[in-house]
Amino acid sequence: MTRYVLRRAFHSVGVALTVLVLVFFVGRMIGDPAVLILPVDARAEQVEELRERLGLNAPLSTQFLTFVTGAVRGDFGVSFWQQVPALGLVLERLPSTLLLAAATMAISIPLAILLGALAVLNPGSWADKSVTVASLSGVSVVDFWLGLMLILIFSVQLGWLPTSGYGDLEHLILPAVVLAASPLGRIAQIARSAVLDEMSKAYIRAARAKGMSRRRAVFRHGLKNAFVPIITMAGDETTSVLNGAVVIETVFAWPGIGLLLIQAIQRRDLPLIESTVFTVAVLVILTNLFVDLAYAYLNPRIRYN
């Protein structure tokens, strides 16, 4: 078990370092920041001067060395745009992103599993079909449209919830519900098929032969084994919420990392791009590490291999 955890953790560090290298070189490919920061009619020597000041004239190898030695100590340099340490800007936004992601997954995962299990108890029934339709709708709905509709109903018409902003629990509800729609649909579909799969296994028949009802056999024995594919999908969905909440952050004026990244890219703010991408990458890596550890807990056969 310890060996498994260590191996996974070691693997994660390797991935993080790879991301660090990639983010540096991709950052240098998206265009000259100096040209973009200065006005369009800036003279060539002004551009040259700014490039010098931002350290962009040094050889690529020197830049890379400076970047890596700084990055491993948590120093990604000063944001071109805001003139403060770039990582600090990202970490400032981190709590709001994490809060939104956590709320989204806290809504979607339990509800999805419940719906999936409910559907399976009577396959082909009215309840089963409703779950299928609901989860398909969740996956297919366009998120910003759903966001706008909910704002229209709950904020404008009913006046129950604020239209946008960040601060209280009531600000969190609408964006989290909107973001939860797609993961809810996907995880419910996976949960349904995973539990259905387990139900046809011999150990469920054996559990019933021990003297329990089908329902009890499914909940006591089937669900834990069905959790492996469910956790995989939930992990994927979590990472996509961490990455791609930009549209919903914009709709609800939610000060998250996604919005910051877009702004950084628009301004060719290399230190800010690098620190944002790296932070998101670390979150994704941590999510995957957690999923790997969950596998080991759920499936004892993994622990010893």
Binding site: A206, R208, A209, P300
Partner: peptide, 28 residues
């Protein structure tokens, strides 16, 4: 009634299966 029927299994009539590996819950 099915609720009473379940109680007969295990208590009065018990069963062992062909493939014990498949008939045991792998994660317990």
């Amino acid at each position: 009634p099915t609720t009473l029927r379940h109680r007969i299994n295990g208590e009065h009539i018990a069963m062992i299966f062909q493939d014990a590996l498949a008939a045991l819950n792998p994660s317990q």
